[in-house]
Design a protein around this nucleic acid. Structure first.
Length: 357
DNA sequence: AAAGCGGGGTC
DNA sequence: GACCCAGCTTT
């Protein structure tokens, strides 16, 4: 393993800080959560930005703040309404954990977001990165906020060849940032590293000729900017096949059901899905009779939908069908008309099916 | 330490 | 297609 410690000792930390912060103040993007960086604003934005690009987050952030402008407003909201605002953003446990944590802040901390690592880090959904981001950006505390950008930028600057996919590698970067972070403006320092990672020191084809830190960069010096950082690859996803049923009753209402409160797409809604690897398609009518006590009449296959998640792939075969009668169906589902149905949060894969109605 | 957890953009 | 994104929780 290459010795990056010598490069850290070699680094002109004062010039590095100055160059980074000055660049950030000159070119930083005008983002909505930067207008008034209260702890609540920073918190919500940082949760939304987890594994999600800035451009994707912006419209969600506006809608979220319009609907839940304060911790108190979010605390007393219905979880289904929070999920509806989050609909399409993904990683829905972020929204549920955020509300859980905000409720704790309102009840235990009088609505004030904790300004110390110990209490902040206990909040649901607030991990090492988010804790550091809130403390540095909202409270100007010199705490590292190490995300993928920071690991990439610092890997290149100091020629670090540790595998950034490994969990323990993050601690190496936290140690380095703790040593070099600006005590005077930790907010601009941390945001500067991330902004640089997003705009200049990109994963592929970094724009080194525009980089304010070029003179400090070991990767540039040795032409390793395309090689670093080192990141091991994850294994391929598995594919699961489902039949998805668009079932209308006599009133033209459609059967939907709420997903379980844990696991994939928790507490979101969907059209009934039958795993085709576990059951033969020809048994579907019988299965539906047992499950719902209704006589299903299949109409036709409407379409196929392939939906890719980070860890698996859904192959959906969408069928239209009808039942006689069928108004209320216990906790396994409910018949709703279009106007009622679109008030509920659906995953994107099933939003595509709603479009077919 | 590894797996589970979304969805969209880029190359 | 593969990669990656202002990561965290659970196992």
């Amino acid at each position: 393993m290459y010795d990056y410690q010598s490069h850290l000792e070699e680094l002109d930390i004062q010039a590095f800080k100055t160059d980074l912060i000055q660049w950030f103040k000159e070119v930083h993007r005008n983002l909505p959560w930067r207008h008034d960086p209260t702890p609540y604003h920073v918190w919500v934005s940082e949760i939304m930005l987890q594994q999600t690009k800035v451009d994707t987050v912006i419209p969600y952030y506006h809608r979220f703040m319009e609907k839940f402008p304060t911790p108190e407003a979010l605390a007393k909201a219905d979880e289904q309404d929070v999920l509806k605002v989050w609909e399409g953003l993904g990683y829905y446990s972020r929204a549920r954990n955020l509300q859980t944590a905000v409720r704790e802040v309102v009840e235990e901390y009088n609505g004030k977001v904790p300004d110390n690592p110990k209490e902040l880090g206990k909040l649901k959904g607030v991990g090492p990165y988010t804790k550091g981001a809130i403390l540095s950006i909202a409270f100007q505390e010199p705490i590292p906020a190490v995300d993928g950008n920071v690991m990439r930028v610092i890997s290149r600057i100091l020629r670090i060849e540790e595998d950034i996919a490994k969990a323990k590698t993050r601690k190496i970067f936290e140690g380095i940032i703790t040593e070099i972070i600006s005590q005077h403006d930790p907010s601009s320092f941390n945001q500067g590293l991330m902004e640089l990672g997003a705009l200049v020191c990109k994963p592929k084809n970094p724009v080194c000729h525009e980089c304010p830190l070029q003179v400090h960069c070991q990767a540039y010096k040795h032409d390793l900017q395309q090689t670093l950082p080192i990141k091991s690859t994850s294994k391929a996803q598995k594919t699961k096949r489902y039949a998805v049923l668009m079932i209308r009753n006599d009133n033209g209402e459609i059967l939907v059901q709420k997903r379980p409160e844990k696991g994939l797409l928790a507490n979101l809604w969907q059209f009934p899905m039958i795993p085709l690897d576990e059951m033969d398609f020809k048994n579907l009518i019988q299965w539906f009779r047992n499950e719902y006590g209704l006589e299903l009449e299949l109409d036709k296959k409407v379409t196929n939908i392939k939906h890719v998640f980070s860890h698996l792939v859904w192959q959906l075969e969408v069928y239209s069908a009808t039942v006689k009668g069928g108004h209320v169906v216990s906790d396994k589902g409910i018949f709703l008309d279009y106007g009622e149905l679109i008030k509920l949060p659906f995953p994107v894969s099933h939003q595509k099916i709603i479009q077919l109605i």
